[in-house]
Nucleic acid binder design. Structure first.
Lengths: 190, 190
DNA sequence: CCGCTTGGCTAACTCTCTTAGCCTTACGCT
DNA sequence: AGCGTAAGGCTAAGAGAGTTAGCCAAGCGG
């Protein structure tokens, strides 16, 4: 009986892939075990619990989204960068719905929680985008939260099929980007 | 052995309350049964399944949010109405996190799904808010989706404890409202 | 070649959702 | 008042999820 030879990273990556394929809600320890070619209890040699697994998948989702956004804004600035960043987040969520769904509804256990760290790093590229606008330093946190709220909100609602007539979502997305861009420019910088 | 005398509405309402108290993730048929003073299987005389229960709770969340927003904007218009509506949604989500969490991640089964109907009706007040701005008719859908995305995003992230330094969220919220208001005014109405 | 760590396995327990089938309460109707 | 029936409880039972305990073999270091 040859060993499969798993390790934590392999298991978590497989879990993330599986969640993307079948939907986060249908991700189960048994299905993941089957996927990686192992019996269910063997997974516990690599992850502490299902909750642990989910948090690791969520961290993967956060850093993946961050990487996608980061490379999308390379060489761009201003409205261009904003649009590219938002589009990158949206595309990532649509391409990896399971990974991203794992991030929703998880309370960080503390500021040094790896998930919290990944979340901060993942949203970092938005800070770079904001430097292309005239934002008062004291307002940076607010602006960052605003961007995150708007684009996270849009992506998750769309990903869950929550827009009633799912026609024209591309156009709606562009409209949202334009709204934010316009607002960031017109807002008095104090 | 006197009957408890439940009906569907009572069970669903109790489920919504319970979810608000202990968190949506911890809502279970057994706990709900205990709460209403009945054995678990008896619940199935009133709801078809746990999924059915959740959808009904979600509908309650949607219409509750809609009512809260609707009455908040009474007699207001323009920026005032926008701010009141956004605040009402945020307050509702913070006061009823379980109810609202139930609405996330549920695919509508069709356009006549009671949940979908409740969702449309719940977001209707935002349409009234938008009439206070100069929006082209063709852009109404986009604007509605933008508002929903931004405020839903903010409220859910905040409710899940997702803002890193949870200080100054009030201020961040006002900043977001102001950003949207500014954008809606400055955006060319075509 | 020995021994220890690593990574599998089976068995077993708990808890959750759900169905089936029974029984009695309470109400409507004569 | 008394009967019939639907509604609303109950127990029993089963499938499937997560998890723990304890065993055993593979594969590496000395």
């Amino acid at each position: 009986m040859p060993r499969v030879g798993l390790d934590t990273d392999t298991v978590v990556a497989a879990g993330a892939d599986l969640a993307d394929e079948i939907g986060f809600a249908h991700l189960t320890m048994a299905r993941l075990a089957e996927r990686v070619g192992v019996r269910t209890p063997s997974l516990y040699k690599h992850v502490a619990s299902q909750d642990d697994l989910v948090r690791r998948i969520a961290a993967l989702g956060m850093s993946g989204a961050g990487d996608a956004i980061g490379s999308a804004i390379q060489g761009r600035s201003g409205r261009d960068a904003l649009s590219a960043a938002a589009r990158a987040l949206r595309d990532f969520v649509l391409a990896h719905p399971g990974r991203y769904a794992a991030t929703i509804g998880l309370e960080p256990t503390g500021p040094d929680d790896p998930l919290a760290v990944a979340a901060v790093k993942g949203m970092e590229p938005f800070t770079a985008v904001l430097r292309g606008y005239d934002i008062a330093p004291d307002d940076m946190t607010h602006a960052l939260r605003a961007l995150r709220s708007a684009f996270h909100g849009f992506a998750t609602i769309e990903s869950a099929g929550g827009f009633q007539w799912s026609t024209g979502t591309d156009e709606s997305f562009e409209w949202l980007v334009d709204l934010i861009d316009t607002g960031l420019r017109a807002k008095p910088a104090g």
